[in-house]
Simulated scan of single mutants.
Amino acid sequence: MDAGALAAALAAARRRTLSLFDALAAAGYDDPARLPRLSIVNPPLWELGHAAWFAEWFVLREATGSSPGEAGGASLLAQGDALFDSGRVAHAARWTLGLQPEVIKSYCGAVLKAILARLSHAPDDDAALYPYRLALAHEDMHGEALLYTLQTLGAAAPVEEDVADWPAAAGEIAFAGGAFQRGGDQSRGFVFDNEKTAALLTVAPLTIDAGLVSNAAYLRFVQDGGYDDPGHWSGAGRHWLAQQGRQAPRYWRRAGDDWTGIRFGRQVALDPAAPVRHVTLHEAEAWCRWAGRRLPREEEWEFAAHSGHPGFAWGQLWEWTASPFLPYPGFTPDRYREYSAPWFGSRQTLRGASFATAPRLRSPRYRNFFTPERDDIYAGFRSCAL
Rank of each mutant, 00 (worst) to 15 (best):
A55Y: 03
V213L: 07
L201V: 15
R297Q: 14
L99N: 04
E144F: 06
A127N: 05
P310V: 03
P158K: 11
C384K: 09
A210E: 02
A210G: 13
A71V: 00
R246H: 14
Y328L: 14
A71M: 01
E195T: 09
G237A: 07
A12H: 09
F54C: 04
G330Q: 10
E139H: 09
T349F: 06
W252K: 13
T349H: 06
D85F: 01
I115L: 12
Q181W: 12
A78E: 15
G211Y: 05
Q186Y: 00
S106Y: 01
Q186K: 00
Y339P: 06
P310A: 13
W318E: 02
F221Q: 06
A269V: 11
L18S: 02
C384G: 10
D165E: 15
T96R: 15
S66D: 15
P249L: 11
G231T: 05
E300W: 05
T207Y: 05
P327I: 10
T332E: 14
E319Y: 08
L134D: 04
Q243R: 12
A26M: 01
A127M: 03
V268W: 11
S363L: 08
E319L: 05
D375L: 09
L60A: 07
L119S: 06
G72I: 01
A25R: 12
A286P: 05
F264K: 05
F381N: 07
L136Y: 05
V103Y: 01
R294L: 06
D193T: 13
H91F: 10
S214F: 04
L99I: 01
I115N: 03
D30R: 02
L153P: 03
W320R: 12
K105N: 02
R294M: 08
A114F: 05
C108I: 02
W320Y: 13
S120K: 04
A155V: 04
I115Y: 04
Y130I: 00
P205N: 06
E195V: 08
F369D: 12
A137Q: 12
W259G: 06
W290S: 02
D125Q: 10
G265F: 07
H239S: 11
R94G: 03
Y29A: 09
G261Q: 14
A236Q: 13
G4F: 03
R351A: 10
E70I: 03
D125A: 11
A168P: 04
A156P: 06
F192T: 10
V222N: 07
